[in-house]
Design a protein around this nucleic acid. Structure first.
Lengths: 129, 129
DNA sequence: ATTCCACACGTTCATTTGAACGCAATGTAT
DNA sequence: ATACATTGCGTTCAAATGAACGTGTGGAAT
């Protein structure tokens, strides 16, 4: 249950690449950076090291290179970040955030349909459960 | 449309109190702090000063004390923070966040109903629009 | 008028974050 | 075997953040 250390913006960006790739060396992460985001190789290295120190990533040795892989499930991190924002913005209530998302982002028709489907599903489940 | 400066966690907590109160002196904010959160009076003072410097709050003089009040609408800040988290977590797609909220937070029946109502409303509107 | 308190303002200070180096060690190509 | 290129690891550095202090001043109570 121990809360994870802070996961700042820049480091998370790097962490997400590892999540996506499953596992990756510094270079692989470096090369997988979105083109807009141009960080020095050294910097990527530093962030990965920090992520390991904080317990977000594990390190494996492959020859002389380190291969980083997730140490915690993305789900957990997402949850934490969302918790945090919900706390900060809405005193811990999720609903206002949902409302905001639906009101202020213009979701596509497809999105709304998906949402409807999910609602139907939940309704069914609660009727049964 | 200029982006607002960073609004860190601790400072936002203080800013929200001002939003809620409409306007407030340092002491009022200090006293309105949730009991869990115990900051020094000085610290509150510092945060308010920074918030003013960043353009989130305005300052008015009332006798010898400063009274702080919002300089930007909370809506704007909320939007910015949510944008940020959506970018960081889901590459800018709101839907996954909505999904997460519905799946992982257990919303109450009432919440779901409210959601359904909103969906219905949107559906109607899009049919007309 | 004097004392005292509260406040503004300027300052400080440690930690974290964002970003990058340098060098020694290790591999790879020749 | 030698040279070259890549890494790991330790370090650095500035800016941002979290938190608090000290002094001077201006009002309020005596």
């Amino acid at each position: 249950m121990g809360d994870l250390p802070n996961l700042p913006k820049s480091e998370m960006q790097v962490a997400r690449i590892v999540w996506r790739l499953g596992e990756a060396s510094v270079r692989q992460v470096f090369e997988a950076l979105p083109s807009q985001r141009d960080l020095d190789f050294y910097t990527v290295q530093t962030y990965l090291r920090r992520l390991e120190a904080k317990g977000y990533l594990k390190k494996r040795r492959d020859g002389r290179t380190n291969v980083y892989l997730p140490a915690v499930k993305p789900q957990r991190v997402i949850r934490q970040v969302v918790d945090d924002v919900v706390d900060r913005l809405f005193d811990g209530n999720s609903m206002p955030l949902v409302q905001h998302l639906i009101d202020e982002r213009n979701l596509t028709k497809a999105d709304l349909d998906a949402l409807q489907a999910k609602l139907d599903e939940l309704k069914t489940r609660s009727r049964k459960g």
